[in-house]
Write a protein that binds this DNA or RNA. Structure first.
Lengths: 209, 209
DNA sequence: CTAACTTTGTGAAATCCATCACGTTTTTTG
DNA sequence: CAAAAAACGTGATGGATTTCACAAAGTTAG
């Protein structure tokens, strides 16, 4: 594993974005790309892109740019694109349903393999090709997925989280407004939709561009 | 307007989060709260919370903490909670529908007032209390909303964005994987669901906790 | 009232990140 | 082939943010 453990987190967060755009270029048949072109596409400063890539060594050639196929293969390896990460989704409400129907597998190595909900009307059905099980059977039916998407009502968030952690989940994408507590070995990414909307509104009013 | 234009962006992004938790405390009848307690609740370091608050002056009292009601009133003013920001939603697919059904107005000063889609079957209906209009009538029916939520297919993203910008929208919450181009006077926040999921997977594999 | 305790607000240090600026290498053009 | 242009990789810089750590001020208990 880790050749390079020293990649800045900010860089790591951009890698999947780079990967997607490089893949698009590849599909379009482009052979080479410069940091400037990539910058226009992903809206990240070209110097930042070069810096990001440089953490992995010299991927480009001076005066030429980057070879698209080479870059793509590199990112595929780095992002483990050949190995699918299996994901469980907890809470098949509006948002959960949207994710199940969303085709995450397009340019993506993550796949929702099972969903859980407390609503008996949903249990046993399939949504977006994913079977829905009862939340009571969580421990029994979640297999060995290590990542969970949490789209339950906030009140349930901590309780479910505790069960997920107990079951060995090591990453949680939390869409509930609740800030959940986990042991230090578990990573949580929060996506708080109303905070995003409110902070956008705040920026608009107080940080005129 | 701006008494203090010098609040760090990182702080500004946390304000809505603080607001929500302080509101919860208020509803629970708590009279005071320390930065340490708040830290446990929102999972932000207590020194960071104190620093954040300090940009607005001395909101607390040494040895005591912060008076919940006072804090709440302060944040309500600061975040313009009394003035609702009207929002338009473009693209009533799975994700868009989820947002329409989601009750954004709970502890929130933003409200989706109109939605647009190209599907004639949806046009004229109401979802989550929000009327759906045809995308062709965008200019005519969006009133003077200044914020838009973009949940259209990526291919449409740039075209719709151009029309929104032309119509005077100054903030866009972009849920499409496309990186849209806007003039420098328009603020865009990207929420890229598959990037979030992939980067979480990457962190899990490469940044063991 | 005093002593022990609590908690803020903030200098100072540390960290993290983005960007500039340019030497170097390669490509392209004439 | 020579000169001009393109574009990388990176040292250095500056800016933003987080965190430490502690004096000052207030609270609580006896």
């Amino acid at each position: 594993m880790g050749d390079e453990m020293k990649i800045p987190q900010a860089t790591a967060k951009r890698l999947p974005l780079y990967y997607r755009f490089i893949n698009n270029l590849y599909l379009q048949g482009k052979l080479r790309v410069s940091s400037k072109e990539l910058s226009d596409a992903v809206k990240v400063d070209s110097a930042t892109i070069r810096r990001d890539f440089s953490y992995f060594g010299a991927l480009g050639k001076k005066g030429y740019g980057y070879n698209v196929e080479h870059l793509l293969q590199f990112f595929r390896r780095t992002l483990d694109q050949d190995e699918t990460t299996e994901v469980a989704l907890i809470g098949v409400g509006n948002l959960g349903t949207a994710f199940l129907n969303y085709n995450f597998m397009k340019n993506n190595n993550t796949k929702i393999v099972v969903a859980f909900d407390a609503n008996d009307r949903l249990v046993g059905t399939e949504i977006g090709g994913v079977p829905v099980a009862h939340i009571d059977d969580l421990e029994e039916k979640m297999g060995n997925v290590s990542v969970a998407i949490l789209t339950v009502p906030s009140q349930e968030a901590q309780g479910i989280t505790d069960r997920l952690v107990e079951r060995g989940v090591s990453g949680i994408l939390n869409f509930t407004p609740a800030r959940i507590s986990v042991p230090p070995t578990v990573r949580v990414h929060h996506i708080d939709l109303s905070v995003e909307l409110q902070s956008l509104a705040y920026f608009l009013k107080h940080y005129p561009l």
